[in-house]
Write a protein that binds this DNA or RNA. Structure first.
Lengths: 337, 337
DNA sequence: CTATTCAGTTGAAGCGCTTCGACAGGGGTA
DNA sequence: TACCCCTGTCGAAGCGCTTCAACTGAATAG
């Protein structure tokens, strides 16, 4: 392996000069810089990551903690992870992939060993066990998702409360008076995942304000579960004409079942989904939807965490406003019989 | 930050003794070990990753190169990544997440800087630009997927050729004489992704051997594309009674379209999928399928790469044998009219 | 013409760990 | 009893980089 010392010798300068050329922390004459850069290229030099980390006590690595579970939002998680990785690279950082498996201990380990300079946590629960550790660690950190108590922490997320409200508004404006919500699997609510509860709150609050009926049901992602949930909803509220779906896996089953029941979309019932645009476009009916801006969230998380690493300390809540795109699955409510 | 020297002082031993307690590379008396471990716990010591990497020239990090594209197999990729991360942890390693974006340069960078001790590459193409670099780098590496020329490299993958053959066999045994294959999106074949081509080869070879008709069509994952592809298939081969699907996104659209055409599954047509078991079980018809053992692949990749890092040099091709699970979507071919 | 400044460069001191060679002392062997 | 070996421990030499203080010479100010 080529070392900095060899580059220095090759270029006829001292090691520190090479280091300053690399870091740009001191002014270097154009001639010297050129010579050093030439040597670096010729020798194929790459600075040794460990030595660099030891000397500077910065690793240029961001840790990304992903959920271990895969019971929801797999494409969203993936898109966020890829966005985090590419954005991190554009800041000359790499990404360390941690899973939820290790739990809070992972935070301690990564912080204690100086493996990563900063952390991004996904799948944050309302009362997340990792948060106390994170606060006391004093490392730059950003959460994707919003816990119950976000003081001292920076969070990025879609504004799910507003998202819920927006979905209800859209259907209400179209004249729908009875709306059913197909939510995430029950387990998601049981572990108090922030986004799921916030969406539900937003839905309920707006529905109450607008005086429309709202039935919220959790639902597993398989066809059979969707069939059961749907028939129970229609038993309880036969006049339901609007559906809001926040469960990617349930979308196709729902559309398929509605078709079988002879309910045309959007003539008889309207469907609004909360999902990535790609999913909405690829569904068997092009879905009116509120997009989950996964890439944007990943990108923002990295930008924010880099800002914090640079010392700009702003503990803020970065809630992305929801955008609803009208496609082919929503229309005016049918005239009441 | 607590350092090893502080632990040594606290325990009343030398720094090297602490180091040997940690690494187990020299014998240490039970009493001393106990005392040192006690000090480590009391002080909350974590070895500094950079210093360790510098001194030992091993980073205890495995780099995982993921595809940047998300036009296929997102859940599979995710599952592999999570399996890699958790298995790596059980070997006391961490995972660095790289995207395809940087391309071959990423290999050079990671190897050159000593950031990672080993690499795992996903989404390997038949003639992958990263492979020459990998070979000359001389780092332990494992590919998930099989390139055209695998000499000097270790690969893990499902045996897709056998998978194709197995699907055809199953349908042929049930009496189907005309089989259509719904493949991945055209782009996947255009960039010569190994698994897609191998599957096609396996399908064709076995079909020829068994004397059954086989029509292979690439297909995008959306409903409209699937509708077009299906109608073209049925135009060309109206007698088609067996479908093999290797495109997760196309599964539900296909089932939904068959339903609309009044073709009952499995009475009129049989469907065999190549997909993770979870997808097969959650579909609107429980699908007969060949599983893509994503977790197993991720796990194996890590085990193999760790073996290589330990010096056991075996350049092998670890092809997992396909397993076909019969579920509710395949049955005897209907009697010819 | 000397004093001051400043851009450009350097030497040296670590950063916290691993690992090698050395050594003390307690067994076993001859 | 003298020798060797083995176990357990230690001191010291780096690993390759960053960064600080210090120095040089040229440019500027007084």
């Amino acid at each position: 392996m080529v070392t900095l010392a060899e580059v220095a010798r090759h270029a006829g300068v001292s090691a520190s000069t090479v280091s300053y050329v690399l870091s740009g922390k001191r002014s270097i004459s154009a001639a010297t810089r050129e010579r050093v850069e030439q040597s670096i290229r010729e020798l194929g030099y790459h600075p040794n990551a460990g030595a660099r980390a030891l000397a500077s006590s910065r690793s240029n690595i961001i840790a990304l903690m992903m959920p271990l579970r895969t019971d929801m939002y797999v494409p969203v998680m993936m898109e966020i992870a890829l966005a985090v990785a590419t954005t991190a690279r554009s800041h000359d950082h790499d990404v360390l992939l941690l899973t939820g498996e290790e739990g809070p201990a992972a935070v301690r380990r990564v912080v204690g060993s100086g493996l990563a300079d900063a952390m991004i946590l996904m799948d944050v629960e309302l009362d997340d066990a990792r948060l106390p550790l994170l606060r006391e660690a004093g490392r730059p950190a950003v959460l994707i998702g919003v816990p119950a108590d976000a003081t001292g922490l920076t969070c990025v997320d879609l504004d799910f409360t507003a998202t819920g409200a927006l979905c209800v508004e859209h259907l209400a404006e179209l004249g729908h008076r009875d709306i059913a919500v197909i939510g995430e699997a029950a387990a998601v609510y049981e572990r108090h995942t922030g986004f799921a509860e916030r969406t539900r709150d937003g839905l309920r609050a707006r529905a109450a304000e607008l005086g429309v009926g709202l039935l919220h049901r959790s639902c597993e992602g398989d066809y059979a579960a969707m069939a059961g949930t749907l028939s129970r909803i229609l038993d309880e509220r036969p006049g339901t004409t609007g559906f809001i779906v926040q469960n990617e896996a349930a979308i196709e089953p729902l559309l398929s079942l509605l078709r079988q029941l002879g309910k045309a979309v959007p003539e008889d019932v309207s469907v609004v989904a909360i999902c990535p645009d790609q999913v909405a476009v690829q569904a068997s009916v092009r879905l009116t939807s509120v997009a989950i801006p996964a890439s944007e969230m990943g990108r923002r998380a990295v930008e924010l965490v880099m800002d914090k690493a640079r010392g700009e300390k702003k503990d803020l809540l970065d809630l992305l406003p929801p955008r609803l795109t009208v496609r082919a699955s929503s229309g005016p409510a049918p005239a009441p019989r």
